[in-house]
């Protein structure tokens, strides 16, 4: 039996966001959560787990890479590098 694939996201500690750690197979969301606990948090890697059915994720296609990402390449003005930082400003 081929079980659905689930993408697993783990929050390593409070204040950080959930990060993708891998995927696994499970018959349903409840079991996916438990499998994720066993596979991805057995060395205290996390305090919270999200599971998302892989088929529910809409991903950008490698074929669209050029029009998706290349146009941002020559727009250096989008980076906040043209501001003069006043002297004496800390923590910026």
């Amino acid at each position: 039996m081929i079980e659905p694939l689930w993408e697993i996201f783990v929050r390593s500690r409070r204040g950080l966001s959930h990060t993708h750690v891998g995927s696994l197979h499970a018959p349903d969301a409840t079991m996916a959560l438990r499998n994720a606990r066993d596979v991805y948090t057995r060395r205290q890697e996390g305090v919270s787990i999200w599971v998302v059915r892989a088929s529910d994720i809409t991903a950008s296609s490698p074929d669209e890479k050029d029009e998706f990402f290349d146009p941002a390449g020559d727009k250096v003005y989008r980076h906040p590098t043209f501001y003069q930082v006043p002297e004496g400003v800390e923590h910026l």
Partner: peptide, 11 residues
């Protein structure tokens, strides 16, 4: 039956 269960039962 599956790798995930191997790990679960191992734990």
């Amino acid at each position: 039956p599956q790798l995930e269960e191997d790990v679960a039962l191992g734990n």
